[in-house]
Amino acid sequence: MLDKIKIFDATLRDGSHALKHQLELFTIEEYCKSVDNTGLDCVVVGHGNGLGASSIQIGMSKYPEQEMLKTARKNLINTKLGIYMIPGFGTIKDNLIPAIDIGVDIFKIGTHCTEADVMKEHIEFLKSNGKETYGVLMSTHMASNERLLEEAKKVESYGADGIIFMDSAGALLPDKVKDFITLVRKNTKFHIGYHGHNNLGLSISNTLIALENGADIIDGTLMGFGAGAGNCQLEAIIAILQKMGKLENVNLYQLMDTAEEIIEKEFKYQNGIKELTIISGMSGVFSAFKEKVKNAAAIYNVDPRDIFMELGKLKVVGGQEDMIIDVAMNLAQKNKKDATSYIVESLL
């Protein structure tokens, strides 16, 4: 295990999913002040799907992203300010340049796990501006280990400082994490991060496995506040590492207090593995689809679990939230047909 482990905190980004993107500016202020001295390397702020993702397709943010970033910027002194962006949602002109102007320090650019070449333009642009930049591969469970290595090497060739693997559906099993992290560590020289989701209860142990096999960035959230069943809970993984004699400079108590004061009291957030998050992990569908699946299930009177399983068969990827309505409508029609044919059959 590497000696220097970085901690990237996605609470104010992934947590936006849990709030249907209604994050308040005063929460950003309060939160940033509270964690600025705890030893976190970076706090990532914004819409759940990153810059430029405030949309009907995913969900509208309560505040413009630039307001959110400016608020965070004012309140982070020791910890770096980070953003996340998925090309195809955000662009260099509309989103990255304004973020640079606001003074964002760290840029994470994400694509589906097989589409890294789409981020080339953005990583090269950011590196030419001297910015610390990471490539992010989403839904890592959907590609083979060899393919993940191939994509990671592309990201390295674009000049990124590191790569972060997201288990967007919380669907990765421990053996796979161990194998692909080992493979990527052996064949690349840049930083490797792991961003786990807890749909199947594996986010913390998978993060530990990633660290033991060569990853050096933990990407998680306080209380696991985030999409679906939530993320790798930072307090827990930090406590585990402190038991192992690592990360002794991180102020765990302060992080716990922040989690309690802000996430628990303000948002009444309770993380937990529930039926829909398990189904999301089982079907391999992005956790953040949960709320929209619940809505569509209610509108079209179908079982939300059926919607998830059907989306899994269609291999939808993050961003394809419009397919939820499509699938729900089709299931509703199919149910109607089944009912009709049942009546017809019973008449025969």
């Binding site: 195809g88 949602f89 589906h112 589409e115 291999k315 394809q320």
Partner: peptide, 10 residues
């Protein structure tokens, strides 16, 4: 207006 593009490798 806003445009979103998603690539799916399925």
């Amino acid at each position: 207006a806003k445009a979103i593009i998603i690539l799916n490798p399925a």
